[in-house]
Design a protein around this nucleic acid. Sequence first.
DNA 1: CTAGTTTGTAACCAAAAAGTTACTTGGAAA
DNA 2: TTTCCAAGTAACTTTTTGGTTACAAACTAG
Lengths: 212, 212
Amino acid sequence: MLRPKQRPANIVSRDPERTRQRILAAALKEFAVRGFAGARVGAIARRARINKRMLYHYFQDKNGLFRSVLRHKINERMRRAEEMAVDPKLVSSLPQWFRQNCQDADWVRLLAWESLQSVRDSVLDEKERRRLARQVAEVIRKKQEAGRLRGDVPPHFVQLAKISLTMLPVALPQLARLIVGCSPRNRKFQEEYGRFLETISVGFRPSIVVVK
Amino acid sequence: MLRPKQRPANIVSRDPERTRQRILAAALKEFAVRGFAGARVGAIARRARINKRMLYHYFQDKNGLFRSVLRHKINERMRRAEEMAVDPKLVSSLPQWFRQNCQDADWVRLLAWESLQSVRDSVLDEKERRRLARQVAEVIRKKQEAGRLRGDVPPHFVQLAKISLTMLPVALPQLARLIVGCSPRNRKFQEEYGRFLETISVGFRPSIVVVK
DNA sequence: CTAGTTTGTAACCAAAAAGTTACTTGGAAA
DNA sequence: TTTCCAAGTAACTTTTTGGTTACAAACTAG
């Protein structure tokens, strides 16, 4: 009678969903920091404060875990992309992309690791991700049509340039630090670089006249 | 008397310098493809067609080999940078930087791996590399003074932007492929993207008037 | 010629890391 | 209450991989 059948919400001894999420979160952090080859399943287990065995209970193996983490994040991004497609006001400019990347640095780094390590073999869930990319490209095309972006360049190149400018300092902070002198995680850097991107973005706007 | 003391130049059974170079070249390739954690010393030895033991004869260990490879490439870059500093005509534009990176993709990828893996700890030969970076920044500053580049932005941000735009498609080809649809190693892509960079670079030029 | 040093090989070892076995515990349904 | 399965643990095995030892062959100084 001390223990009611309905278990109290605060004292939980077993909770599969929580455990699963914990492993996913821990794996994201570990993979983001060390990459796939550098990551240690033992370290992930420790970080998630679960037994290594459970990791193999919820996921096939190290590889499967990596793919699950990726999928999880991809789905998250898909949802966000759909929200943005609905509300065109949310379509972001260069500094906004940059801020977003700074916020989700783990995802950016995961992407970088994945792209770096899969030189020959194709990438996970290629089809869906291509669709996501095309979706973004479509938004850019519409902006070009509306005259808010120069129309004499291919949309996907604009997209690639945007990603390059906003992702590299987040993905490769050490490299960025060699150049600018301070860590890209520095708040002041982020603000200043954001403003810089704003300034630079005239290169993407239409009808420019260069006065000698 | 069949074997003269002076060994014939064409039949060489032992050649330390060649072996060393071979190991370095093989290690560069392996590290560029798989990164430090993913690289296998056995694979490097096989690639170099030497015995694994020799690798430890010429270099301390896997770590030492990685640093040697990096140093080797850094020196190469230093020399090139000095040449460029002498002849201001060689100071390169965005498309030229991009082409250079395409040519030396292994170096670009090595840089990316290094930066990605060393999140907390500092980077190798930080002092010299900072000097190299400042050297490049100085060239940019001079261009600004000469009025060939807009002067209202910090030189090192311009440098960071240039590196981002010209390095990312080479360092992360899979990611770029998701966006543009074809491999960045594709010759046609390289030409088109080079032209695109040329177009975009008006954003870096001074005295721009945006006509509504 | 020969003794000693350098360059090279094959086989081996130890540590680390992935993955597994055998067992226990919690709790919900019968 | 009892039964049974999912959730959990500790300790173990296997595989991988960085690093080493013991030995042989080539070259070089004396």
